[in-house]
Structures are given as C-alpha cells and as structure tokens.
Amino acid sequence: MLRQLTIVTFAIFLSFSGLHTTEAKNKETKTPSTTVQIPSSTLHIAKENTNPNTSQDTPYLQPSELSQELLETSNVPIQNPDLIRILNETSISKTPWAIGFRATIYLGQWPLNYESEATSVNWQYQKVNTNHYDNRSGKSQQQMHYNQESQSIVKGGLTSRINEADHVKQMMLLTASKKTNLTLSFQTIIGAGTKKDQVYNIAPKKVGYLYAYTPAVHEKGKVTYGEVYLTMKGSKRMIVVKNVTSQGIGAWIPVQDYVSLSFGSYDQPR
C-alpha cells in the first residue's frame, strides 16, 4: 500500500508520538450482537487441549483526541485499526500563523470499514478425528470416549481474493467475534491426546464411530475502500476520502478450543 506523503502546498509540522492501545470500541464499529446457541454435542476443550491456542483477539484501539476529531470529519466511516493506529501516532502542531495555510497529505488507499450482512456457525466445519470401537464379537455393551489421535491444524480464510487481505481479515475477525461472542482465530490447533469424559455406548454386534469436527463462523458482508487525504485549511483539520469503492467478501473463521462430536453405531465397519 502506498504510504508516501504528497504535500500539495508547503511543509507542515508533523511528528509521531506514542501509540494508544487502550482496548475500547470506536464509535464507528458498533455491531449488533447475535445470540449463538452452542449445541450440546459441541464441547469446550480449552482445559483438555494438549496444544494450547494463542488467542488472536485484536484490541479495539481507542482513538486519541486528535484521531477522534479527524474520524468525525471523515465522509466515510473508518474502522481499520491500522489506519487508526497511524492517526494515533500523528500530532499536528498548531501555529499562530495558520491563517491562509492550506495543505493536503495523501495517506494512501485503505480498506476503511467492513459491514456485516450475515453471520452463521457451521458446527461441523472440518472433521479432525475419528474414534471407533468394534463390538461385533462382544456379548456386553462397551463404552468409548473422545480421544484425539493426532494433532490437527484447522485454518480458515477469505472466500475470494481481495486487496489488502490482512486488513480485511482483521476487521472481519473483530466483527464476527463481537457478534457471536466466541473466541475466533483464522487458525486453531487441537493437540494429540486431547480427551473428554463423555461416554458413548456400543451395543453388542455393533461398530461404534465417534467423529469430531471443528466449528467455524461464516462471516459475509462488504468492505469499503478509499483514498485517504489529511487536509488542513487554516486551523481546520479534516479527513477526506475519495474514489470510494465497495466489494463483497466472505470468510471462514474457526472457533478455538471447541469440538463437535457425532456418534453412530453400525452393523458393519465404515
């Protein structure tokens, strides 16, 4: 992405100061919550997981006073945490000789915001394990439990190519996490030897199969792009967005530390 600053008039006083990383919600990122009912067959395995996952939670950046002032002047809502971070790092020194001063600084083309249109959960997104017990020669009922036989890495991603994919994924992750109240990540790992105590019974003359799946959120919406300019006229400072475009996009985002279990018993091996 182009980050070169183009100064239209004459030099202005710009400096970079400390990053404000207080976790808070930009007023432009308000997202309605969705109540997600977790099925009884879907189990939380954070404590049992032999390969602990690192949370991919992205903090909501609290805009600095100057950033908030600039965001309120923008003609297009801005959610992109990285753009807000850059604005947080910027300070503009006011001067008594600002009368008649005019300057425009090009900050580059950015994905500005993501608008969610649909959020749903596929509780059987990807199969990660199969346990089975052959009780065809048995004369009594036998029991089996979920036991992860090998490490499984489940990855999500965008459903199509798009410019500045990392920025878009970050905004979609923030939106989906807020709507579902689930711990999401574009990669999750289930370690070998992860177990749960739930009992599944296999009758005599039957073969029992216990399938484990990783759930994932399907997030769908549109992302808005635009060329961002920082404009100053006298003592007034504002953000102007030009050449605005929108593009539809979808993503699969795995749910961390959950498995959905499906049990069945059959007359013959499968």
Rank of each mutant, 00 (worst) to 15 (best):
S17I: 14
T6P: 02
T95G: 12
S260C: 10
I84H: 01
L70M: 03
G208I: 00
N80W: 01
N88S: 07
V244R: 01
P39V: 06
N88W: 01
G156K: 04
G157N: 05
I7M: 14
H218N: 10
K195R: 14
Q124L: 09
Q268N: 06
Q109F: 05
V259R: 00
H167M: 12
S120M: 11
T188Y: 08
R136L: 14
P96T: 09
E115T: 15
L158H: 05
Q187M: 10
E115C: 10
Q4L: 05
R85H: 15
T231F: 02
K30L: 13
I190T: 14
Y211L: 12
S91F: 11
P215M: 04
N135F: 12
N53M: 05
I38V: 14
K220I: 03
I7R: 12
I162E: 02
I84L: 09
T188D: 04
T34C: 06
S91Y: 15
T31N: 06
G248M: 10
T175R: 06
E117Y: 08
D257A: 04
V8C: 13
E117C: 10
G234P: 07
N147P: 03
F186I: 10
N135T: 12
E28D: 10
P77F: 03
R237A: 04
T95Y: 13
N75F: 07
Y258C: 00
I189E: 07
W123F: 05
P81Y: 02
T183Q: 13
L66T: 02
G248V: 09
V121H: 08
L2E: 11
V255P: 00
F263M: 08
A11T: 11
Y266I: 00
T245L: 07
K236L: 11
Y60G: 15
A24K: 09
T180F: 03
I239R: 01
T58C: 05
Y258P: 00
P52D: 08
S260Q: 02
A192G: 07
N181H: 14
V240M: 04
I190M: 13
W110G: 07
P32A: 02
W252R: 06
S64R: 01
K30W: 09
F186Q: 08
H218A: 07
K196Y: 07
I92H: 05
K27M: 07
Y258A: 00
Q68T: 14
G157Q: 09
Q142P: 04
I78R: 02
V228C: 06
S116N: 11
D267A: 03
M172D: 15
T119R: 11
S177E: 07
F186E: 11
S150F: 12
V259S: 01
F16T: 09
E28T: 07
N88I: 01
S160K: 15
Y125W: 14
K242H: 11
L14T: 15
V228P: 00
I153R: 12
Y229I: 10
H145Q: 13
M1K: 04
P204H: 01
P254C: 08
T214M: 02
E89P: 11
N122D: 12
K220T: 15
T104N: 04
I239L: 15
E227T: 03
P269Y: 03
L87I: 06
Q79K: 08
L182A: 05
A203P: 00
G157F: 06
